[in-house]
Design a protein around this nucleic acid. Structure first.
Length: 218
DNA sequence: GGCCAGGCACAGC
DNA sequence: GCTGTGCATGGC
């Protein structure tokens, strides 16, 4: 069995990758995390531009804006009614429970912050961990569909593990460093997006090329 | 024109 | 606990 750090090193040799999540502030990371759910990032970008132009990338503004106005601004990201409602609930939660401070929520003990996030509407496991890692700089490994596909094909995962089981596998094998977690997740996504979908051998991202590469000793 | 994209919640079993 | 379904847009 190839170790997770070995796979990391092989991926790193093939892709240039930095901190990755494109955002100008932790709050913008949060907004992006909601908007990107089951949605192409290109569409998220359009919505973020709209919000920025409307000077609405701010907790109080977003919380108090008329729902329909917010819906129209984020419309390009899809599921806009759901996402508008959930974003406003999140901002109102910050205002009421954390004096409007995102940092106040995220600087709690890691498991406490995670549980609080998971209790909010529209925040599931992946979104919670994305917020913790990329907005809060907390070492919480993000598991997404790419991770499941790639590491399932590599034989690291059986395919029936629950989210938290997979997260534990990664967090047990990868040193708890924020930058390392960020880059590893980014490498997985980038690797799958660039290579997996483009290969003629690709079948729902179980593409032989990507896996042979990752397994191959370099 | 069909399929997919960096999910989530909820109903029904 | 697991599975199916609704949510909606834009790019390929």
């Amino acid at each position: 069995m190839v170790g997770l750090m070995t796979i990391y090193e092989r991926l790193q040799k093939q892709h240039q990758m930095d901190g990755w999540w494109p955002a100008e502030s932790p709050f913008e990371v949060v907004v992006g995390a909601f908007l990107t759910q089951n949605t192409n990032w290109n569409n998220v970008e359009k919505a973020l531009v709209n919000l920025r132009d409307a000077k609405a990338l701010e907790i109080t503004t977003l919380a108090q804006m008329p729902r329909q106005e917010l819906e129209q601004l984020i419309r390009p990201s899809g599921f806009f009614r759901q996402k508008a409602q959930r974003l406003q609930h999140f901002c109102q939660h910050l205002l009421h429970q954390h004096e409007g401070s995102l940092e106040h929520l995220l600087r709690q003990e890691l498991d406490s912050a995670r549980q609080e996030l998971l209790g909010l509407s529209g925040i599931g496991h992946e979104t919670a961990d994305s917020i913790l890692l990329y907005a809060g700089a907390r070492p919480s490994f993000v598991i997404d569909s790419y991770t499941r596909r790639l590491f399932g094909r590599l034989g690291v995962l059986a395919g029936n593990e629950k989210y938290d089981q997979i997260r534990q596998i990664f967090m047990a094998a990868v040193p708890a460093e924020v930058l390392l977690y960020k880059i590893y997740h980014a490498l997985i996504v980038t690797h799958c997006k660039e290579l997996c979908r483009k290969s003629p051998l690709c079948q729902q991202c179980f593409c032989a090329d990507i896996c042979d590469y990752a397994l191959k000793a370099t």
